[in-house]
Structures are given as C-alpha cells and as structure tokens.
Design a protein around this nucleic acid. Structure first.
Length: 889
DNA sequence: CATCTCACG
DNA sequence: ACGTACGTGAGATGT
C-alpha cells in the first residue's frame, strides 16, 4: 500500500534545535537544527519507506485562530536568531533532496497536515504524521498514525488509536477536549485554572467531553466546580483553538508529493556545503558513488542483530579463549543505589560475539578465569557506567578493575548538561541502530520485570555492542575538544578512587545518633505543644499550606512573599515576621529541628548498613554541570555545620577502627583564588600572595578605607559581594542577599569593579567569548555549553550569562580538588600508608587516619592539595583532626 | 509527581 | 522593563 509521511516542519526543527548541541559549519553558519531534522528524516525514510512525503510549515504571523483570540501564541519567546537562520536552509535542503514542502498563508502546519492526512486517508493511503505536538493526536485513526518526537528528536513514538486509549483512555477526538480543559501555556491557550492533565483526564473519563462537563457541573464540588463554572467560556474557546482545521483549501495533487529516492546530484553538494560528513557517509554518497544504492532506503535501520551465547559450564571454555579479545562489557543491575543493587547479569563482548552470564554462573567455581580477568587491572574494560558496575559486582563478591573507557563519563564530559544520559540516547546521538530503552524491555517502577533469558540476553548484548561502537567516536570527540587529558588522566582514574572510597564507607555511631534523635524529639515535642497553644488550634506544622493559613489568615500577619500556589513561609519570610508575633520564633526553631530529625537522624539511620555499621555514599561524577561531584544514598555533602544544633550530627561520623582519627582538610577561598588567577586581577592576586583576609581586603578597596576602619558590617557586605562575584553577580541578587535596595547593590558592584578592574574585564570577556563560542571552559578544558547565551528572552539570557561567569570558577575549583584526590591516592599507596580517603565535600577532603600516621598526614594532605595545580596565586589548605568529624574542625 | 522547604559548598 | 544570585539531594505534603 502507498504510504504518506507528513512532517510538521516547524515543530520538528524547533525540537531539533534545542535537542542538539550548537553546531556550525566552517563559515559560521548555524546548522544544528537542520542536522537534527535531516538525521531524523533520513532515519524515518529508511525505516518507513514512504511513497509520498511532504514537510509542512507555518506561514506568517496571523492565522485564522487570531481572529477570535488575538492573544493566541502570545507571550512566546522570540525564536532565537540561530534558529531563524536555519529555516531557509532547511527549505533549501529539502529542495535539493527533491522532497516537497508546503505552506499556506493564514494556516499553521497543523492544519495543513490535518487536511492532507484526511485527504490521504480518503484516497486509501496509509498516513504517518511526525510532530512534537501532542495536539496532533486528534487526527489519529485506523489509517493515520501520529509519531511524536521524544527526548530529543532521534526517537519517535508512534500512536494509533490503541496507544491513545492505553495512555490516556481517550479517543483521538477527545484529545481536543483534553486541551480545552488543560489549556496550553506554550500557545497561550488558557484552559481552566487548576486543571492539569490528571484532573482533565478524570473529568473526561467521567463525562466524555468539555460540553458535557460544563453541563453537569452540579455533579462536582469544591474549587474545581467553581473554576469550571467561572471559566466555562475559556474552556469552550480553548477547545476551539485546539481543534485542527481539516478543510484547508489545498490545491495539490498527490503526485507532487511522491518520493522515490533522493536527487543525488543536488543533495550531495548541499550536504557538503553544510559539512554533514557523517550523513554523507551514512548515505554512501562520500565514497564510490553510482552503485544505485544511494536512494536512502538501502540500509536497514532495524535493531542490530547480535550473536549471543548464553554461557553455561560447557561454553565457559569458549569464553575463556576469547577473553583477550573482549572489546566491551555491560553489567545490568536493578535498583538506584549501586551499593544494594541486585545483579541481574553481565555480557562480555568481542567485536563479533556476545557472552551472557547469569549471576549464578558468574559466581560459580568454574568461572574463576572470567573473574580473574574482571579483577585484572591490566585487562582494559570498556562500557557504560563502569563505576556502577564496579560497585554492584563488589557487593556480590566479584572484584572489578581496569576500567579504561567509560562511555557515560565520556558523554558527560562532551556535554555535561545533557539530561538524557542513557545508552539509548547515546546510540541515537551517534546514529547507531535504535537501541530499545530499558524501560521498554524491562518495564519501569512497579512493572519492572526481567524478561525471558533470550530477550534479556539479547538486550544486554545490544547494549554492549552499542557501547563498543560508541567508544571510538567518543575518543575522537574528546581529542577534538582537547579533553583527552581530562578524561584519561583525571576523570577515569578518579572514578576508581571514588569507588574505593564508597566501598570503604564511613562508620556511624548508631547509638549516639539515636540518642541525639531523642534529644531532638524532646525539644520538638515541647515546641509543638507551645505552638499549638499559642495558635489555639492543632494543625500540621509540616504543611506550608496549613501554616500559611494560621499565620496570615488567622493571625493576620503581613504577607511578605507569595509562591505560585499560596503564601510563602520559608525561613527568610519567617525571619521578617518574627518581630510581629512570638509564635514565629518557635516555628523557626521547630523547622530547624524537624529538618535535623527527619533528614539527618532518621534518614541517616536508614542508610547504615548492618553488615558494616557504615554508610556508603555514592559519589556521582556525571551529574553537576560544573564538574563537581554529587553524593547520594545518603548525601554526605550536606551534613549540617553552620548551626551548632545541626553541627552535632557530625559527632556520629567516627573512624572505623579503634583509636584512629578523622582528619579533614579544606581549601581556603579556592574559588576566589581561582578567580584571581584566571582574571589576572593584580589587586586580587596581591591579596592572596600576602595571604590577607580577603573579605576585609575587599571591604578596604570597595569602601576606600584602611584595614582598621573596616567594621563588621562592611566586612559582611564585602563578603556578600565576593559571593556574588563568584556566582555571576546581579544587583538584584545582591540586594536580596544583603536586604538592601537594588540601587545600593548596583553601587556596591560598581565600586567593586572599579577596585578590581581585572575582574570586570574577565566578566566582560567570558560573556563575550561564550556568546561567540556557545560554551565556556575551565582551566582543564572542561566544557559547558550555554545554548541560551544569545536568547532574546531576558531571563534566559541573563541566566546563561551568570552561568558563563560562574562555571569556569566553580568548575576549575572542581578540577583542582579532583587533581588533589588523584595525587592523594597515589601518595597513600606510594608511602604505604594505612590512612584512607573517605569523603570529598567540594573544597574539603576527609580521611580516617591511624595514630602513628597522624603527624605525617597532617602535613601530607594539605601539601598535596596545595600543589595540585600551579596558579599565579598560592593555593591554601587548612587541616584539622579529632575523634570524629565534629572535632575535625 | 510537582511543589515547597532546607541542608551543604 | 525584564526579575535570579551558582551548584547539588532529600523529606514532607497534597493533588
């Protein structure tokens, strides 16, 4: 049967733009959106083999929808210029390929597609619509399928009537009613306030349509009923706006949309001009041409075929024979916390074959040689998230060593802000055969189920195969970005060090923690009864909503700040309310203690492993956009220290061996020292060369006074300014922090920049460079892309500008402490020390140390930290030790 | 599952 | 005029 594909050009190119990293050809032309679009379109053609193909575009600003509702699509951000310039490029590319496109004044691409899909269906064609817009689901029928782009655009998810029923419990036409009730912020369609997707679906399941809901509001109650009654007209109008017009006067015959391969003679020059080398190669246009296979349908895009052997005692020998040829592996586990994950299986792969091992086989006596290979530091391992693999295997008694290339870690360095780090997403990014996601094969949440061995082993083999294909691509990309040193000499070695620290764990004194909990409990109980008594009513103190009602409605305190759902009751607000009513102080104290109790006492107790009496945090190396680590299960990077009450929590973190010490060392002012170095500001450098109190020095220069004239308040202000500088300063942010007016804050900043002109120049330069390059980098070449740096939307742009100022500072500081960790790890083993590195808290390292090494370590640790990287100003680390983490201050 | 609040650097 | 300080993780509530 003939098949028609209709692509919503605007929707797809828009998504492509935001899904792809910035990309320009050598003449500076932005091409990322066109690349993403083309890539997706080619894949689609290969998979679907359409006989007819058309790309529809929106034309003009005004459409018939604006006639009834002028605000339609109002409040939308302006299209970024980097994208606008790609529209003509895309049209040119389509023409060069011989693919037809269409637009019509007054109509949106939606309506053109709606009409053509109806006409196609009526002419007996099978129709596939491709868009990122869920609204389009309303045109689905037995003959019309809508494929929605997913995370990024390289994957699409097809919807027929069955899928819509399964996902929403609705018919295609009811999608219009759904939008009528929900509205759509991006198109400025109001809908009914307070009704989101969940509520709208409930209503439609009960009543069937917007009209029926509105006619029967008497069957409803509460706020929802009120909203529906008051906004009935909005709902009806929203539904009308969301309805796709399927009677657009289009005068085009089907044969203008036929597709039977590309016009090579024009497509190739176009692809060359855009410098889409990988696409040229993929289409076989680059090498020997004219073999007649270059019609875009030659390659099968179906899932990759893998040769899998499910290893049993007998086939173990076969595997042993090829261990030296293992090119990649994949370890599968269940559970977020790798310290308690269940091991589900492992695949070891050569370039041709995949060997699947079930946990029992891997642990069996016969598999000794395989385990020896896994533990062999000299046998290089390549795969996805080897850090997690290491931990999972460790807790199942299987040592792992020799991680050489982790593709998750490489992907993070290549783009640390990419939210989808899955192997499926990486496969798509590198144009590999589509890899089904874990969610698809294994199910997610409660539906998680390990499938039949056949399916499961094939899935893992495909993952391993994908990893093997991705490695060389990433090696080249790292080289290209000059990040190979960062990767091979810093991040890869660090991942092993982190795993060691995590396995070691930190001992927690369970009894002391429980006793601390009892003390908190007593104080909390007292506070609660005092608060109830003063309020004259019992309520849920943990509910900001109920608390707000008490403070603002019942007691009539002034409203300082609102959240989007009601009154704000955060600490900042409560501080301001304290003078008005004695209850507020009690609430503040309650909040503080409740936090300590739930997060730190109860939360920490739950994480103590009974086998070890320790907590084993999981440091993640691929989360923070700046290059910092993060810590989970439990988070040991946010243990209280600022307030004495909370600081006591640190007393329960103790050495794991009798008589040992906890030793902590932290960098002093590392971020400002980094700033002094990269900005080259003479005054700032001078201050650190003389090891001055930096906030006092800042106060002297900003307020133009001598050191003995700096009072506490001036120093406090200077300190806030220094923080602001590091964060990417704004007068608004500083004014909030210091509780002063924006004007006063602006004056401070001005005076600061007058005093530290090198810093001003750095801030100007870094923002300018970021606008030019689309990214910023740290001293060790760590990158962060800033796609919004040229946005026309003030907020987005300002955010990106501050990020451009902050990331090189925070990121370089992260580079430095990571270097120090690698050096310390080496130093500990080369000195043959028993001391162990336990934790990293951004600018601090924590160790446990036997008494005989205390003196040595107290010198070695700060010295090593200070020499981690040579800057134009000295680095300074301060050390202290004690019986527990509290004492090590 | 989103929102608010709060702990850390 | 615009209206946020940078980077994280976790617990509790309420829809």
């Amino acid at each position: 049967m003939d098949k028609l594909i209709l692509i919503d050009g605007n929707s797809v190119i828009y998504r492509a733009f935001f899904a792809m990293p910035p990309l320009t050809n050598s003449s500076g032309l932005h091409t990322n959106a066109v690349y993403g679009f083309t890539n997706m379109m080619l894949r689609l053609i290969q998979e679907q083999k359409p006989t007819h193909l058309l790309v529809a575009f929106d034309a003009g600003k005004q459409t018939f929808r604006h006639e009834g509702y002028q605000e339609y699509k109002g409040g939308r951000e302006k299209t970024p210029p980097e994208l606008s310039e790609q529209f003509p490029l895309l049209r040119e590319l389509l023409e060069s390929f011989g693919i037809s496109w269409f637009e019509l004044a007054g109509y949106e691409a939606d309506d053109i597609i709606g009409t053509l899909s109806r006409l196609g269906e009526e002419s007996g064609l099978e129709v596939l619509v491709v868009t990122g817009d869920k609204d389009m689901l309303q045109v689905v029928s037995d003959k019309v399928t809508v494929a929605l782009t997913r995370k990024g655009i390289s994957e699409v998810e097809p919807y027929g009537p069955k899928e819509i029923e399964e996902k929403y419990g609705l018919t295609p036409l009811q999608i219009i009613d759904l939008k009528g009730l929900m509205g759509d912020a991006s198109d400025n369609i109001p809908g009914v306030p307070g009704i989101g997707e969940k509520t709208a679906l409930k209503l439609l399941h009960q009543f069937g349509s917007v009209e029926e809901v509105l006619a029967r509001t008497d069957e409803l109650k509460g706020k929802m009923k009120e909203n529906l009654v008051n906004h009935a007209e909005d709902a009806v109008m929203s539904k009308r706006l969301a309805t796709i017009h399927r009677e657009v006067p289009i005068d085009r015959a089907w044969d203008t949309m036929t597709f039977n391969g590309f016009k090579e003679e024009t497509a190739v020059p176009m692809l060359r001009k855009l410098e889409f080398k990988s696409l040229l190669e993929r289409l076989n246009f680059s090498g020997s041409e004219g073999d007649g296979q270059a019609d875009g349908t030659a390659a099968e895009a179906s899932q990759v075929q893998v040769d899998v052997t499910i290893v049993e005692s007998a086939s173990l020998k076969e595997l042993e024979a090829v261990l030296p040829e293992i090119a990649g592996l994949h370890v599968e586990s269940r559970g977020d916390n790798p310290h308690q994950a269940e091991l589900l299986g492992m695949v070891l792969s050569t370039k041709e074959r995949h060997f699947f091992l079930q946990p029992e086989v891997l642990k069996s006596e016969e598999a000794e040689a395989v385990r020896a290979w896994l533990a062999d530091e000299q046998a290089p391992k390549r795969g996805y998230d080897l850090h997690r693999a290491d931990l999972t295997l460790f807790w199942h008694g299987i040592p792992f060593a020799g991680a050489e290339f982790d593709i998750q870690l490489a992907a993070y360095l290549l783009d640390p802000t990419e939210s989808d780090q899955t192997l499926s997403a990486l496969s798509a990014k590198y144009n590999l055969a589509p890899l089904p996601s874990d969610d698809e094969v294994l199910g997610k949440g409660a539906k998680f189920k390990v499938p039949d061995l056949e399916i499961f082993s094939t899935h893992l083999a495909r993952k391993s195969a994908a990893a093997i294909s991705i490695v060389p691509e990433q090696r080249a990309a790292l080289e290209q970005n000059e990040m190979h040193k960062l990767f091979y000499e810093l991040e890869m070695p660090l991942s092993r060090i982190l795993a060691d620290m995590e396995k070691q764990g930190v001992a927690v004194d369970r009894e002391s923690l429980m006793q601390l909990g009892q003390e908190f409990e007593a104080q909390i109980a007292k506070l609660v009864s005092q608060i109830y008594e003063i309020a004259g009513i019992e309520f849920n103190l943990n509910s900001p909503k109920q608390l707000g009602e008490i403070l603002f409605d019942k007691l009539g305190l002034p409203v300082i700040k609102k959240t989007k759902t009601g009154y704000s009751t955060d600490a900042e607000v409560l501080e301001k309310l304290a003078p008005y009513h004695e209850i507020v102080q009690y609430i503040l104290e309650y909040r503080q203690l409740a936090k300590l109790q739930s997060t730190y006492v109860e939360g920490l107790l739950k994480e103590i492993r009974s086998e070890t009496g320790k907590v084993h945090t999981y440091f993640r190396q691929t989360i923070a956009a700046t290059g910092r680590l993060s810590s989970q299960f439990p988070n040991l990077q946010n243990i209280p220290i600022r307030m004495e009450e909370g600081r006591k929590i640190r007393k329960v973190f103790v050495p794991s061996e009798e008589g040992w010490y906890i030793l902590g060392a932290d960098y002093s002012q590392i971020e400002l020292r980094v700033l002094a170095h990269i900005s080259g500001d003479k005054g700032l450098q001078e201050a650190f060369l003389h090891d001055m109190d930096i906030h006092t020095k800042t106060a002297m220069d900003v307020f133009r006074v001598s050191s003995d004239q700096v009072d506490a308040n001036m120093r406090r202000s200077a300190k806030a300014v220094n923080f602001g500088i590091v964060y990417g300063i704004s007068d608004y942010g500083l004014s909030q922090n210091l509780n002063i007016t924006r004007k006063e804050a602006a004056r401070f900043i001005d005076q600061y920049f007058d005093a530290f002109q090198g810093v001003r120049k750095y801030m100007d330069d870094i923002v300018r460079d970021a606008k030019r390059d689309g990214y910023v980098k740290t001293l060790l070449e760590r990158r962060r892309y800033l796609p919004e740096i040229n946005a026309s939307n003030f907020n987005l742009r300002s955010f990106a500008e501050r990020t451009a100022m902050n990331t090189p500072i925070q990121g370089t500081a992260a580079d430095i402490i990571k270097l120090a960790m690698v050096l310390m790890d080496t130093a500990l083993s080369s000195h043959g020390l028993k001391s162990r590195m336990l934790l990293q808290v951004h600018d601090e390292l924590v160790f446990e140390v036997p008494p005989e090494e205390l003196e040595l370590m107290s010198k070695l640790v700060p010295e090593t930290m200070e020499k981690a990287l040579k800057l134009s100003v000295p680095l300074k680390a301060e050390v202290s030790s004690g019986w527990n983490w509290y004492e090590a201050k």
